[in-house]
């Protein structure tokens, strides 16, 4: 309620069609009235602007240049983008791979995180902590996914190969991470394994933040089963956490790179696990064509922005 009236107060003068000077005076007045807000924002915003916003703004135009890190960037207009979309077969392939990964680490992982967070929430408090830890653990240790190399190793030392051969399912070791037909599946499994990260934990926090008395009230109001409880009480109460998790999942889904590169090698067989981000890494840090690399990242950024807006619309009513 109060939020709405506050919004109205700001909107009202604009309805009156003020002159430019009036508008400026009004804004100044509002800024003075709310000076405390700016004081409280300042400590964070100073660092945020200097070390995040400024570098981001500086990187944006780099996609339109030719830049090798040694000489000053040279403006080339849309040249990078022409090459990217018309003349780069590997990029086209990487779009496909990225989309495959994005489906698994995006929507699928998002729904899994939600279901798991929900199920965990139904348990006894000690078990809650334990299971949250279990599902979050893979994201906790920076590069623990290297262990999968031991499991998927292509020789008989690999756990999976040894296990299958022991059971007599196969007689020769499978090349899990170099065989073009197997590696995509293997990397997807590992991607899923590490994807219960920030989003999952934020959802857990969202569940924990719900007031328990809401459920009792719900039961009195005639909620019959847990499903209704979820739809009418739980989801509306944790909407903002869902939005946060969605943003995290979008970032994760579109920037899949390091897991595939570590496990399947770089470059991977037949570019099977070559994502857009891997492509950007290739051009940026292997060939030192930073301008081209920045153009790739720029395209990815636009795609992510569009996705974010779509998801924002879908979860729209929970945004604020």
């Amino acid at each position: 309620m109060a939020e709405q009236t506050a919004k109205k107060e700001i909107l009202l003068p604009s309805e009156r069609k003020m002159s430019r000077k009036e508008k400026r005076d009004y804004t100044l007045h509002e800024m003075k009235r709310n000076y405390m807000c700016y004081v409280m924002l300042a400590p964070f915003m100073i660092f945020f602007i200097i070390f995040t916003v400024v570098p981001v703004i500086m990187s944006l135009p780099m996609g339109f240049t030719s830049f090798d890190m040694a000489s000053f960037p040279k403006w080339v207009g849309f040249q990078n983008f022409y090459t990217l979309f018309l003349d780069d077969d590997v990029f086209m392939k990487s779009i496909r791979t990225t989309l495959i990964f994005a489906i698994f680490t995006g929507p699928l992982s998002y729904m899994m995180s939600f279901m798991l967070a929900w199920l965990i929430n139904e348990l006894h408090p000690t078990l809650k902590t334990l299971f949250t830890l279990v599902f979050y653990a893979p994201s906790m240790a920076g590069n623990i996914y290297f262990v999968w190399q031991l499991i998927f190793s292509g020789d008989q030392y690999g756990y999976l190969n040894a296990f299958l051969m022991e059971l007599g399912i196969t007689y020769n070791a499978k090349q899990w991470l170099t065989d073009a037909s197997l590696m995509l599946g293997c990397v997807i499994i590992v991607q899923l394994w590490v994807s219960m990260g920030a989003g999952f934990l934020a959802m857990r926090a969202g569940f924990q933040g719900i007031d328990k008395s809401m459920y009792e009230a719900g039961a009195i109001e005639g909620i019959k089963n847990r499903w209704q409880e979820l739809i009418y009480i739980t989801i509306p109460s944790m909407g903002p956490s869902l939005m946060f998790a969605a943003v995290m999942q979008i970032v994760q889904a579109f920037t899949c790179d390091i897991v595939g590169r570590t496990l399947a090698g770089f470059p991977s067989t037949d570019y099977k696990v070559h994502t857009i981000m891997t492509h950007a890494f290739d051009y940026g840090w292997v060939r030192y064509e930073m301008g081209y690399s920045a153009a790739i990242c720029f395209v990815l950024f636009v795609v992510m922005l569009v996705c974010n807006n779509l998801v924002g619309k879908m979860l729209g009513k929970y945004m604020d």
Binding site: V54, V56, S59, M290, A294, C297, L300
Partner: peptide, 14 residues
């Protein structure tokens, strides 16, 4: 939010 989504190889150089 936009700063969260932005991810570029050039960012580190900047």
């Amino acid at each position: 939010v936009i700063a969260l989504l932005f991810n570029s190889t050039v960012l580190y150089i900047m």
